[in-house]
């Protein structure tokens, strides 16, 4: 499968995943969005040396992966491009911060190493939280939740349309590269001499297609506001989910849970 085909397949798989009828998918989108934002906010607020405190925040993605029946393996595969970038963020910390702050047995660990790991974990947790949101909520429902938060309709519609046009653009690029490959046997990839014309063609075709989609929307009464179906009601389960996670995040952030557990076991 070509890379473009693979990308189209991944987008569709994610759409399918978000459309499934699991309990986590049925939760109110605003609740899921709020829990995700809160989780990301609290995760990034941990001090740079508080590694033990931050580690406990793994509980949220772990529980959602297990209870929500979302494949961790597929998630890592889909995020393979982003995760290394996130991990690179704090890579130079050990060079600048060499003071020893802890010992693992006889091994001295510098503050730079701890802060590097903390930064990496913050990045990984926030990316996973975002992924879990889009894997359990359709883009329409996320946009619906954003509108409930009174984000400008122009901004929300742009998110929705970019998502829709992404697959249109990829499908167009796929058709063009396939046509190229069929007439350029034995070539690996696209020769640099035709990059310009291929990119230009892709742009023109995408613009044409986008124009037609927009015309089709206008002909069906679109006047700048997307309607996302009937109003989704908040249920007791949604409120329970929201309260439980809000309480859990606050406890995990402001109480040294790991220390308490450690004291219980070590004495």
């Amino acid at each position: 499968m070509s890379k473009i085909n693979q990308a189209i397949y991944e987008i569709r798989s994610l759409d399918t995943l978000a459309n499934e009828n699991r309990w986590v998918n049925r939760l109110h989108p605003l609740v899921k969005l709020w829990v995700t934002i809160l989780y990301i906010g609290i995760t990034v607020s941990f001090p740079k040396y508080n590694l033990s405190g931050l580690l406990v925040m793994a509980v949220y993605p772990v529980i959602l992966f297990v209870v929500g029946e979302i494949s961790f393996k597929d998630s890592v595969r889909r995020l393979w491009l982003v995760l290394p970038l996130v991990c690179v963020v704090g890579i130079f910390n050990p060079l600048f911060d060499k003071d020893t702050v802890a010992y693992f047995g006889s091994l001295a660990v510098s503050g730079g190493v701890i802060s590097m790991i903390t930064l990496m974990l913050k990045g990984i947790f926030t990316v996973l939280a975002g992924y879990l949101l889009i894997a359990s909520t359709t883009i329409e429902k996320i946009c619906y939740a954003l509108r409930l938060l009174h984000l400008p309709k122009l901004f929300v519609t742009q998110i929705l349309l970019i998502y829709r046009y992404l697959s249109v653009l990829l499908a167009e690029a796929n058709r063009m590269t396939q046509a190229y490959a069929l007439r350029a046997p034995g070539q690996k990839g696209v020769h640099f001499k035709v990059w310009g014309s291929l990119a230009g063609q892709l742009l023109l075709r995408s613009m044409d297609r986008a124009e037609e989609l927009y015309e089709s929307m206008c002909l069906r009464g679109y006047q700048g506001e997307f309607y996302y179906g009937s109003r989704i009601k908040l249920r007791a389960a949604d409120m329970g989910y929201l309260s439980a996670w809000t309480a859990a995040f606050l406890v995990l952030r402001f109480f040294p849970v790991i220390d308490v557990i450690g004291r219980i076991f070590v004495g």
Partner: peptide, 15 residues
């Protein structure tokens, strides 16, 4: 008025 485009892919954009 209802207008049906030549290319159905231009008309269908919802999930």
């Amino acid at each position: 008025m209802g207008y049906v485009f030549q290319d159905a892919d231009s008309q269908l954009f919802m999930p």
